[in-house]
Design a protein around this nucleic acid. Structure first.
Lengths: 153, 153
DNA sequence: CCTGAAACGTCGACGGG
DNA sequence: CCCGTCGACGTTTCAGG
């Protein structure tokens, strides 16, 4: 889908504050509230905007341990199977298949190292998993969205 | 901060749809709209809810290349310095210091491998960076928030 | 915590560039 | 096509109980 500069500004405004009113966004970008709403509806329908969400501090909810786990598998489990199996584990926050020796890279959040150990065990119980390699997060430095459009996009 | 079951349900509702009205959330959790608003205001003030945002499809904005980069450094650059230097590169979407041989783990989004190569070069231009190790993302499998509270939290 | 009323936001329909 | 204006309806946000 093609984005004009107004769409981009709207996306940036709603990325900064997903609950801003259409009127407030319109005042910022130079449109009326209905015009902003029409564009947002279009962006959501096109899948450019996937949704709106509250951003929650994981540590405040008790998820104090964060880790990246490389998954090494025998055979090549299909991505769809991996997704299905890994999504059953609520501690797996994101997962992707990757280049390199590992087959998948997982991001995991748990309530402590004890809890993390149990998750590792459940991962190795998957029949195609041969071993794992854990990288524990020490200090999260920052995290942000890329809401600017690529000029060549 | 202490969360009761109602707070937790409110957080989950707003995680699923960050633009839900307080009235709609209240209908779901069994509270009036003003009661929900007071609780959300309190959660935001306490930092449990960090903010609200639009979720954007990076690929739709032209960021088609995603990678994880391990950063190997000489000396031990302080986390604050790393954060400051890395945040200047808009392609670095998140960063953290980690256990293991690498000093930091970066998540990077670019408009293609050419663009990614330029980012790698800028990373190695940081004087304390000795080398990097790249893992390219093939298929993102899923990504989600952990909005349930840990019972022991 | 709830209720009620005023201010505000949303979202359709309509007409102009 | 996309914009803006208007008006009805729903939501937010106070105050007071």
């Amino acid at each position: 889908m093609r984005l004009d500069p107004l769409d981009e500004k709207i996306i940036q405004a709603l990325t900064r504050d997903g609950r801003r009113s259409f009127a407030a966004v319109g005042a910022e970008v130079g449109l009326s509230a209905p015009a902003v709403k029409r564009r947002v509806d279009r962006l959501v329908a096109a899948g450019t905007i996937t949704g709106f969400t509250a951003v929650v501090d994981a540590a405040a909810l008790g998820w104090t341990t964060e880790a990246y786990v490389e998954l090494y598998c025998s055979g090549q489990p299909r991505p769809a199977l991996l997704a299905q199996d890994l999504e059953r584990l609520p501690e797996v926050v994101s997962a992707c298949t990757v280049t390199g020796n590992a087959d998948a890279l997982l991001r995991i959040r748990t309530a402590g190292v004890r809890h993390f150990e149990r998750v590792l065990q459940r991962l190795t119980e998957l029949d195609y998993v041969t071993h794992t390699k854990t990288t524990l997060v020490l200090s999260p430095l920052f995290e942000r969205a890329r809401s600017e459009a690529n000029p060549a996009g």
